[in-house]
Design a protein around this nucleic acid. Structure first.
Lengths: 104, 104
DNA sequence: TGAATATATGAACATATATTCATATATTAA
DNA sequence: TTAATATATGAATATATGTTCATATATTCA
């Protein structure tokens, strides 16, 4: 699904604030690593902690924030809780930003 | 120009850090308002300050940061300095995030 | 039940950061 | 040159925030 550039012009103040919340969320290196790790497949907290080299506690704190913004969702499987992306647009977001980094 | 979702999987650590810098930049409400204001047309510092309801000094500080990330560029016209977006991908970034906000 | 594992959470702390204020620089006009 | 306008910048401050640590909750297995 694509959006014309003109539609971004008409954005309410509260929508802008919501957008800022999302960008701020993936603007933290740790949280961005978490989100990036979940692009490939769902991961439990323990796996995420190892992958992004953070303590399980720190990961859990950040997952809570990401979940509050509905960027990730979770499902329990026994003792473990698996997290996955809850947003079809995130990979596009990352891809577009990557273009800026690589072309700039 | 579009990018397949798979290409975002292979991203180096330093690229992820650069991505985080970009998202953090537009993750601040004030800076996001600035960027959003520049979607329509170029604006001088004075106009931007009025538009986003910040002091010229605060706007100048944030423009400096945005310019460092090559998200905006500037040109002098007499006493005034006009700022404009220096990134073709930003409107796409904002549009995709807006989809999340509106669909979620 | 009790132990072990996995995850969550509140408080505290250390760091990062956005704004303000004072001041500096640059351009234009008188 | 002098005054006025526009923008930039450094220092200081107040606030926000990511991590750590201790602890709590939940599930599984012996």
């Amino acid at each position: 699904m694509s959006v014309g550039a003109e539609s971004i012009i008409a954005v309410s103040g509260s929508e802008l604030d919501s957008l800022a919340d999302i960008f701020k969320a993936i603007g933290d290196p740790g949280r961005l690593k978490i989100v990036h790790s979940l692009l490939a497949r769902e991961l439990c907290v323990h796996e995420l902690a190892q992958t992004v080299e953070m303590t399980p506690s720190a990961v859990s704190h950040q997952l809570r924030l990401l979940r509050g913004l509905k960027l990730v969702k979770r499902r329990r499987d026994g003792q473990r809780i698996f997290y996955s992306l809850d947003d079809a647009h995130i990979s596009t977001l990352l891809s577009q930003a990557l273009l800026h980094v690589r072309e700039g």
